[in-house]
Amino acid sequence: MAEPVELSLRVNGHPAELRVDPRTTLADLLRDRLGLTGTHLGCEQGVCGSCTVLIDGRTARSCTTLAAQAGGSTVWTVEGLSPPAGLSRLQEALSAEHGLQCGFCTPGFVTAATELLVASRGGDLDEAAVRDRLSGNICRCTGYQGIVDAVLAVLAEDVATLPGADAVATGPDVGELVEPPELTPAPVDPSGPADRRGRASAVAAEVLAHLAVFVAAALAGVAAWRRWRR
């Protein structure tokens, strides 16, 4: 067995001092050691987003984050994003718009939407933008419409009082959140079917665009990581 790791972090505003097996994920730490079972494990492969938490004000997959990586960080989970009694405005809206059915993915959406709402600073995100920014979380029940409508309903409100808003607001600069570059479609000759080269260039443009997003995201991630470490 590897040597346990000493960890000190803040979870939902409270200090936590623990010794963990180095391979312990943040999700397991939250669920099994701290009893915060509102963070759900839907895939443990970083795909579904049910385990999304805020680490230093930014959404992260707690299933693919080692607990040790969160040492020294501030972590917020759905329990911390819920008022002691009643619901937050976001949670009320999710209920009012029927944005949850089985509820398994819901804590991940609450977390992701908290970041989205606070980071957008009341910006004029339209439905397509909200759909795009929630696309890291999978819901199998709702078809997303209720979730999107709930976020749009709260978007225009003062979100500074949302639980967790301070954490998001003081996280890495929002400007570093990556905007996907515009895809440049290949020129199309309307008089006839595109030739093979035209299609190839369309495919290449798409690949390059995706690569650009990936590189930009990676660079932004590295930059943010460095800032956190400082």
Binding site: T37, G38, S82, L94, S95, C102, G103, F104
Partner: peptide, 19 residues
């Protein structure tokens, strides 16, 4: 009617078998 189920689910106060 808004769902009676929601308050517990939306705050993560849930009892999945794994919990």
């Amino acid at each position: 009617r808004l769902r009676k189920e929601d308050a517990r689910l939306v705050t993560g106060r849930t009892r999945w078998t794994e919990n």
